[in-house]
Structure formats: C-alpha cells, structure tokens
Design a protein around this nucleic acid. Sequence first.
DNA 1: TTTATCTGACGACAGTTGATGTCACTTTAC
DNA 2: GTAAAGTGACATCAACTGTCGTCAGATAAA
Lengths: 222, 222
Amino acid sequence: MENTQETRARDKQSGRTYGGESAEERLARQRRQFLDAGLELFGTVGYRATTVRMLCKQAGLTDRYFYKTFTDTEDLLAAVYTESLDQIQTEVIAAINASGNRQPTSGVIDAGLEAFFTAFENARVARVCWLEVLGVSPRIDALYTKRIEQFADLLLDLGKSVLADWRLPEAETRITGLALIGAISQSALHWLLEDYCSSRSSLISANSRLIHGLINILPKGS
Amino acid sequence: MENTQETRARDKQSGRTYGGESAEERLARQRRQFLDAGLELFGTVGYRATTVRMLCKQAGLTDRYFYKTFTDTEDLLAAVYTESLDQIQTEVIAAINASGNRQPTSGVIDAGLEAFFTAFENARVARVCWLEVLGVSPRIDALYTKRIEQFADLLLDLGKSVLADWRLPEAETRITGLALIGAISQSALHWLLEDYCSSRSSLISANSRLIHGLINILPKGS
DNA sequence: TTTATCTGACGACAGTTGATGTCACTTTAC
DNA sequence: GTAAAGTGACATCAACTGTCGTCAGATAAA
C-alpha cells in the first residue's frame, strides 16, 4: 500500500547527521534532556504543576521534540520514575553484594539500608518516587505497585538466602515483605517532608532493628 | 465604618429558615453533601480529575454553595481527609480500649490492627487517605505528615504503656513509630491496589508479627 | 399580599493547557 | 550551490477550568 516517499518522509527522523550528531544520537540526547528536566520539575514544583511548556523550557528544547519522544507528561513521569528506581535498585544490590560477609546478617542489612537512604538524600528523586508518582493514573499506580513488589522480593530473597528454611506461608510472606518496604519508605518519606532533620544513621538503625526483630521471631525449624 | 445593612446583607447567610431548615442547618447539610460528594469523587475518579462542576452535580447543589463553604477543591480534600482519619482514629482507639485485657499485648495490638484494616476496606476512604492526598500541595503534605505522626504517637503511647520502661533514644523512637505506621499503611495501600485479594486476617497477622518482633528485641531493663 | 431572601439553571468571562501549525533560518547531502 | 531536512521562536486552535453574574421562580416574614 504505497509505502513510498510520502510515508517514509513522515517517519520520525529520516536519519541525517546534524551538528555532528546522528539521528539516534540526537534522539537519545533529547530524551536525556527531557528526563533531566522531568526529574528537576517533578521533583520541585511537582508533577501536577508541571506543563509541557515548562519542561521544554527547562530542557532547552522546543515543544515538537517533546512529542517526538513522549506521548504525555505522564509518559515522561513513568520514564523518570523507572530510571530513578532502576539506579537505586542497582546501587542497593551492589552494596549488598559488596558487604560480602553474608553470615552476620546485620552487615548485609545495614549496607542495603545505607545505600537506600543515601540514594533518597536527593530530594528530587525522593519526591518523585514517594510523592508525585501516587494517585496519577491506574497505569502509574500499576508501575508503582510493580516496583514496590520488586523491592519486597529483593528483601525476601535476601532473607530466605540467610535463613536456611523459611516457614512462613506464602501469602503472609508477601505481605511481610511489602510491610517492611513500607516501613523503610515511610521513613524516607518523612525524612524528606521534614527536610532531612534526622540523621541517616538513626534511620538505618531504627529500620535495621525492625528487620532483626522480625527475623528473630520467625518460626524456626530443625 | 458603615457596618450597616449593606455589609450585613452581604454576610454569608443572613439567617432565615427555608424549607424547614435554619440557616445553620442548611449550611451544615450543604457541607455534608459536599463532603460525601468529595469522598465519592476523590475516591473513584481521583482528586486531579475532579472539578467543581462535578462535585456540585454529585452533591446536587449549585456552584455558589460550594464557594460558600469551601475555598478550593483542595480545601474540600483536606476536609474529607481530616474527617475520614478522625473517624478511623476514633474506631481504632475504641477497639483498643474495648479489648480491655491490656496485659497480653497481642490482644490489644490485633484489635487495633483489625479496626484499622476494617476501616480501609472502604476503597474510597483508602484511596483518598493513601493515594490522592499525596503530592497535592505543601499544605496537604503537612496535613498528611501531622496525621501520620498522630498515628505513630498513638502506637508509641500504647507501647510505652505496656512496656514499663522504654529505653530507646527519642530520635529512634519517633522513626520506629513512623516506620511501623509505614508498614501498616503500605499493607493497606497494596491491599487496595490489588483489589483486596488478600484476607484481612493475613494482613493483621503479618503486621502483628512485625510489631511483636520489635517489642521482643527492644533493649530491656531491670 | 407584598417584599426581601433563598434557590437552581444557565451563561459569560478570562486564563491555561495540550497539541499542532507556520515561517525564517541553519546545516547537511548531492 | 541548490534542494531537502533539521531547528527554534512564535502563533494558533479548541477544550477545559475556576469564578462570578443574571434571572425567573420558590419560600418565608412583614
């Protein structure tokens, strides 16, 4: 059906170099600029108050390029959120693996918590991940749920690897993981909302105690 | 300065009975209708998508009466949130006091948790309190923070009354309370987002275990 | 009954927003 | 060097929102 010059010309970027950049490089750079602008604006004035025009001004690009890469501001929010959490998750896992001494549980847990809270010392990241992302749309809610569950699974896998046999029924295991993530994230949220007036170490120690208390009371076997 | 008929006439409601209701009764009824409409709409289509017109249609009243009682949709949101949490807090406290047997800690805790989760089985209440209220404005954020802290204090007071001497430093005590509320509320939030597919009892038991584990590991004296 | 208040339906207004289009100018490819 | 593609500043468009005003009719007080 006439997939000729017309159609081909209308395709995104026909692919010419411009300013020393290939078409893909330009698209990637624009995407990055919008991601940065999104984190900056969503993390300060908030998602609801952020308009396409503001994003473009912040990114130093024109409206057209926004719609070339994203469909919505919501689309950008999802991208910013995903990228932030990807990075944090990577850092937490790295910290856990780095604290190689897996036997004394406390070391691993505190290392993970430290990486976690350190990442959320960036107020923009914290605000986007815990405040702005909630109640936007069913799609974003689903994304949020998925990421929280990923973190819960990370925590539970760690627990199961440390405690040889795990005797908690599956349903309660899931809820327990979510509850722990909730405890940690609520701490982080209040940390942000109170302008980080508590010390990071007190956050780590309070949450660490919670986790140790749980491990202690788990049904034990053998 | 001329506080005569002009000014007096402009005052809210000069105070005549209409339809068998006094001026105050009418104002109170209208306020209630808007509160109900707010809970309904904020709890289903969401705060961002709710407009003044929609609220008035839902409440069966005209725009004018909205502005007579509330300044903003944000104002109404704050009122709906406050009323919902007031009621839940009352129910939780009542449940705690009702389970009079204060010695066996578990009874009190489970009773409180049961009242809590039962209240959030109302999806509209849950959505408003955990989703819609976040990231709206600094004013609403402050309100949220205050209420969460109230719940945390409730929990901590209960703990301190059960455990004779409390040896945790104040800073960590606060964070611990917030973390516990976070655990419980994250459970409730996921319960909502997953359409209440878990059982209430599993939520109670998982969170109860978390609290008992903490109590167990607290620094003990005497 | 008459007059002032209360009510609901409706329209008007300005301000924003998302989304698209225009136009002159640069840069690249042929 | 010439045509096509890329770019940025700006205009345009409809849709929506908060907010306020108008007006006819219902209700209560005089």
